[in-house]
Amino acid sequence: NERAWTKGPLQAEIDPLDLEPEDVITSFDYLMEKEALIVGTSNGLLLLHNVDGKETEVVGRVEGGVKCISPSPDGDLLGVTTGLGQLLVMTHDWDLLYETALEDQPDGVDVREPKFPSGEMFGSPITWRGDGKYFATLSEVLNSSSKRLKVWERDGGAVHASSEPKELMGSILDWMPSGAKIAAVCDRKAQNEAPSIVFFERNGLERSSFPIGEPIDATVELLKWNCSSDLLAAVVRCGNYDS
Rank of each mutant, 00 (worst) to 15 (best):
L10K: 12
Q11G: 09
A12Q: 10
E13D: 13
E13N: 13
D15I: 11
L17C: 03
V24D: 08
I25C: 01
I25A: 04
S27Q: 02
F28D: 08
L31A: 11
E33Y: 11
T41R: 06
L45F: 01
L45V: 06
L46I: 03
K54M: 05
K54C: 04
E55V: 04
E55D: 07
E57P: 00
V58Q: 13
V59F: 04
V59T: 00
R61Y: 08
E63T: 10
G65H: 01
K67R: 06
P71F: 00
D74I: 06
G75D: 11
G75Y: 10
G75W: 09
G79H: 02
G79M: 06
T82C: 00
L97A: 01
E99C: 02
E113I: 09
K115V: 02
F116C: 06
P117F: 10
P117N: 10
E120Q: 11
F122V: 06
G123M: 02
S124G: 01
P125Q: 05
I126Q: 05
T127Q: 08
R129I: 06
Y134Q: 07
L138I: 03
V141R: 15
L142V: 12
N143C: 13
N143A: 15
S144R: 12
S145P: 07
S146H: 13
R148N: 13
V151K: 04
E153H: 14
R154I: 03
G157D: 05
V159C: 12
H160G: 06
E164H: 12
E167I: 00
E167W: 03
M169I: 09
G170T: 11
S171P: 02
I172D: 00
W175T: 01
S178I: 03
A180P: 04
K181Y: 15
K181C: 09
V185M: 06
D187S: 07
D187Q: 06
A190P: 07
P195Y: 03
V198S: 09
V198P: 01
N203W: 13
E206A: 07
E206S: 09
R207C: 09
I212Q: 07
E214K: 00
P215I: 04
P215G: 02
D217S: 10
V220Q: 03
K224S: 14
N226V: 00
C227N: 14
L232D: 09
A233D: 09
R237T: 08
R237N: 14
N240A: 14
Y241F: 13
Y241H: 08
